[in-house]
Amino acid sequence: MNVRDIKIFAGIRQFTDWWAGELRILVPRAMENWIGGGPAQVILRMGEKQTHLLLREDGEERELGECDLLDGGSDNFEQLRELIAQQLPKDAMVQIELPAHRVLTREAFLPIATEHTLNQVIGFEMDRLTPFTAAEVGYTCRMLERMSEQNKIRIELNIVRRDYLNDLLAGAVQLGLAVNAVYVGQQNGCVYESRDNLLPGDMRPEVEPLWSNRNRSLLAVLLLLIGLTVVFPIYRQVSSIEQLETEIASVSKDAGVVGNKKRLLIAHLEGREILVNKKNNRSAKLENIRKLTELLPDNTWVSKLTIDDETISMQGESLKSSDLIEMLEQEKLFKNVEFVSPVTINRSSNMERYEIRLQLAENDGGAN
């Protein structure tokens, strides 16, 4: 890759970064954090005398410097303020971590009925459980044990004086930071829950409401894009169907003529096949009659002869009808030769009347 190509790719990368930044402004913070895995976190970790400033991004934590958060006149304080203004993300979440000795922690017992309304109950019972009122402190509480037999719950209560929180927030504001949460903890990478936030609600920065004007506009644009995504393919499909119907209508007349000719041709072929079959059947019947004529003796008469596809039936008179069965069975064309009715004597001609039925062997073999 030569220098020219490198410059071209660098320009493309610069443009895409700028374009992504412009689009990022339109995305709500909650959605951006959900897609990107969470915002950066600025941590003010309180020590004995100094406050350590740390930045946590993508699961990694690095220290940026330290200062006395309660003393805004130090040189380190000014340097950190410039560093924060230049390098830290504007949408970073800011939290303060307090050492345990800065927080009053105590355990208490409450009726089990207060399990689901702990925060409200603690607010009413603060002056009984601690030397302070609820208006003088920031606090969190959580249930440690559920004692069903005693109908009680054991809770842990963490308390920080509000005037101390005010001093911490004022120092953070001088650094150019708006604090979102105050927690108790000193462990690297510790993940806190929202219920552990000691900062009272009236001291937290305002959060953009979910149904703000900007979010409503974004939702309208999103719905419009979804509507276009759904409607446009349907419109194209309908247009394609209409075009196909027009083309089909233009050739339907010719197709009808071709169809009529095809039907006439099929009817002609079927009629021809019927005639051929009739001719073949007539030739077979004539052959059977010829064979019977050769087999029957001169003293035998046939008065009625019926031939179909499988059997031959004949009626007549003979001097000795019993010989006819044996005579016909010797012929390979016939089988199952039998009398249909008993043989009778015609007294006027002194001959035997017979009615014989036989099957055609060729049809049977063809069926098998």
Rank of each mutant, 00 (worst) to 15 (best):
L210Y: 07
W211R: 08
W211A: 11
W211E: 03
N213H: 11
N213Q: 13
N213Y: 11
R214W: 10
R214F: 04
R214A: 10
N215M: 03
R216A: 04
S217H: 07
S217Q: 05
L218Y: 00
L219N: 05
L219Q: 13
L219K: 02
A220C: 03
V221T: 10
V221Q: 07
V221P: 00
L222G: 07
L223T: 04
L223S: 09
L224A: 12
I226A: 14
I226G: 06
I226L: 15
L228N: 05
T229P: 00
T229S: 13
T229L: 15
T229Y: 12
V230N: 01
V230R: 04
V231P: 00
V231L: 10
V231Y: 12
F232C: 07
F232M: 14
P233L: 05
P233D: 03
I234F: 05
Y235A: 13
R236I: 06
Q237F: 08
S239T: 10
S239P: 01
S239Q: 11
S240F: 11
S240G: 15
S240W: 07
S240L: 14
I241V: 15
I241Y: 14
E242D: 03
Q243R: 06
Q243D: 14
Q243H: 10
L244Q: 03
E245K: 12
E245D: 15
E245M: 06
T246V: 15
T246G: 13
E247F: 05
E247A: 08
I248Q: 14
S250E: 11
V251F: 03
V251E: 01
V251S: 08
S252C: 01
S252N: 12
K253N: 08
K253Y: 12
D254I: 00
A255P: 00
A255Q: 06
V257D: 14
V257C: 05
V257N: 04
V258F: 10
V258P: 00
N260F: 14
K261W: 05
K262S: 09
R263G: 02
R263I: 13
R263V: 14
R263N: 12
R263D: 11
L264G: 04
L265A: 07
L265I: 03
L265S: 05
I266S: 09
L269I: 07
L269V: 06
G271M: 02
G271S: 13
R272C: 06
R272G: 15
R272N: 15
E273Q: 03
E273S: 14
I274G: 10
I274Y: 02
I274K: 11
I274E: 10
V276A: 12
V276P: 00
K278E: 12
K279W: 03
N280G: 07
